[in-house]
């Protein structure tokens, strides 16, 4: 019995040390990527290419999901609000939920599973097939040439995708409540506009999506670069990217929200 307790405590200790060590490695890697970003910024074509894969190819899922989330919000919001006779506030509800939370968070979650996993798999596979070592042997730094452009493309894409998601959501809510149900168009927009604040809601939502972009892409490139050079290694790393970034997004969202909206309604 005593032995069991000791061994499980030792297990916890081992896990903690392992986790801390990995976090340290990841942080060092992250700094290295930032340090070696010169090439990507000088040769922006490299980033543009990756923008296509992370940004453009994520558009469809972002647009469609945004539209549907907005439509559901509109429908549910209307159902609830009309009981209190304030269905004209449905615009406020849709817009605030999207701009403050759902836009950045859901877009980031989708981004992690669409683009983050692809980044990890690609870098991991390049490592497994010795493409990264080959690049190193050609005196080209793989972090500068392969990792940094993908990182910056992700960081740039994320706020745009979140904004597109929110706009599509507001439009979806408009479709359902104004066009289909018949809520007054004027009050849909005006209520929204009087409740949504540029500084507190739009800017904060934008800042959130920037944080998420950095977090998701940093995790994705690290997992890819750190993946064991085997098929299982790469597939495990891809899964870890999605799981870790989802958890980090949600945790970070809580922290950011607590900071941003403290003392505010």
């Amino acid at each position: 019995m005593f032995k069991r307790i000791v061994s499980s405590i030792r297990h916890i200790g081992h896990q903690t040390i392992e986790g801390a060590w990995r976090l340290g490695v990841a942080t060092r890697f992250f700094l290295l990527v930032l340090l070696k970003s010169g090439t990507s910024l000088r040769r922006f074509g490299l980033v543009v290419r990756e923008l296509y894969f992370t940004g453009v190819l994520s558009l469809i899922i972002i647009v469609v999901s945004g539209l549907f989330v907005g439509m559901v919000l509109g429908l549910q919001g209307y159902e609830t609000l009309q009981k209190y006779g304030s269905e004209s506030a449905v615009g406020t509800l849709v817009a605030l939920s999207l701009v403050r939370e759902l836009g950045p968070v859901v877009a980031a979650l989708l981004f992690a599973s669409r683009a983050g996993s692809a980044i990890t798999a690609e870098i991991g596979l390049m490592k497994a097939t010795e493409q990264l070592s080959a690049m190193g042997m050609m005196a080209v730094d793989p972090i500068a040439r392969v990792v940094a452009p993908r990182f910056w493309a992700g960081v740039i894409s994320m706020p745009f995708l979140a904004a597109i998601f929110s706009v599509m959501g507001v439009f979806g809510g408009y479709l359902v409540t104004v066009v289909f149900i018949g809520v007054d168009e004027g009050s849909y927009w005006s209520q929204m506009q009087s409740a949504v604040d540029f500084r507190f809601d739009i800017v904060n939502g934008f800042i959130k999506s920037c944080f998420f972009g950095v977090a998701v892409t940093a995790i994705a490139v690290f997992e890819g670069y750190d993946a064991p050079p085997t098929a299982e290694g790469v597939s495990g790393a891809t899964t870890r990217t999605v799981v870790t970034s989802s958890l980090v997004i949600l945790g970070l969202d809580f922290i950011l929200t607590a900071f941003m909206f403290r003392g505010v309604s």
Partner: peptide
């Protein structure tokens, strides 16, 4: 999209 959010939704 950012401009729509700022001008139309956030009423900047």
């Amino acid at each position: 999209a950012l401009m729509i959010l700022s001008l139309k939704v956030g009423n900047l």
